[in-house]
Simulated scan of single mutants.
Amino acid sequence: MSYCNAIIGMTDEKKAIHKPYHDEHYGFPIHDDNELFGRLIMEINQAGLSWETILKKEAGFRKAYHNFNIKKVAGYTEKDRERLMADAGIIRNRLKINAAIENAKTILGIQKEFGSFEKWIEHHHPKTKDEWVKLFKKTFRFTGGEIVNEFLMSAGYLKGAHSEDCPVHKKVLKAKPLWNAKQRAGRSA
């Protein structure tokens, strides 16, 4: 069942958690590197848990990870790791916390080479899901198939965030997600 259809059958309480994300964020292109990094953190933390758990903790993640500021997170020390392990507002998993910090350091290197995390993704676009997974596993920590798929779909790089009959699908198309972009002439693969 698609996320779009699942929301229809949710209780009002659950809709209040899911609908804002579904209607305003899921599948829409993200052009801010810190927000892209934040989405990656959230997708990594969702592994083994429900998306609802992550949505309920989004404010906690933002606070704990300095609003997903890549430079600040890349500079985290052992004291920061311990602070995060003690923070009930996030998922307290050492592997996921370490992945966030190490991935922030990786993104800083990507920004130096490509200008931005977004430009790095665009540089590698288009790829199949399997090619993306291979690239992300080679580049980042804690990035398996589902994490990579959901990250790229949620940020507008892979098709499938919304059913074509979902009203939000048309809004996503107007936002020009990269998966819907026409091949640009002279673009390197």
Rank of each mutant, 00 (worst) to 15 (best):
T143N: 08
F114Y: 15
N180C: 07
G60R: 04
K129T: 05
E58R: 15
M85H: 09
A185D: 10
L178F: 14
L178P: 01
H123G: 06
M85S: 12
F117N: 03
E150G: 06
I70W: 03
G89S: 14
K63H: 04
N69G: 08
A74V: 12
T53Y: 10
E78C: 05
K159N: 10
I91G: 02
K105T: 10
I54N: 01
M153E: 05
W51M: 07
F114W: 09
I97A: 04
W132D: 00
L173N: 12
V148H: 00
L173Q: 11
L95V: 13
E150C: 10
V133S: 02
K56N: 14
V73Y: 02
K72H: 07
F142D: 00
N69M: 11
G156F: 01
V172Y: 05
L158G: 00
V168S: 02
I107H: 03
K56Y: 13
K182F: 10
N149W: 04
K137S: 15
G48V: 10
G156K: 02
K159Y: 12
L49F: 10
R81V: 02
R83Y: 07
E102H: 11
N67D: 15
L49M: 09
G109A: 13
D130C: 04
K171Q: 09
E58L: 14
A161L: 01
N93Q: 08
V133L: 06
T53D: 12
G160D: 03
V172P: 00
N149D: 09
K137C: 10
L178I: 14
E150Q: 10
Q111A: 13
K56A: 07
F117P: 02
Y76E: 08
E102F: 06
G186C: 11
D165F: 05
G156I: 03
L95G: 12
G144W: 13
M85A: 08
V73L: 06
K79C: 04
W120I: 04
R62Q: 09
E78I: 05
H66R: 14
P126Q: 15
P167E: 05
Y76R: 08
E146S: 15
L55E: 07
K138D: 15
H123K: 14
W120P: 00
P167R: 04
R81G: 01
E78L: 08
E52A: 12
K57L: 09
A99L: 06
K138T: 15
K134E: 02
E122P: 03
K112C: 13
N180Q: 13
P126S: 15
W132L: 01
E102G: 05
N93S: 07
Y65V: 01
W120C: 03
S154K: 03
K127W: 03
G156Y: 02
E131S: 03
H162V: 06
D87E: 09
T77V: 10
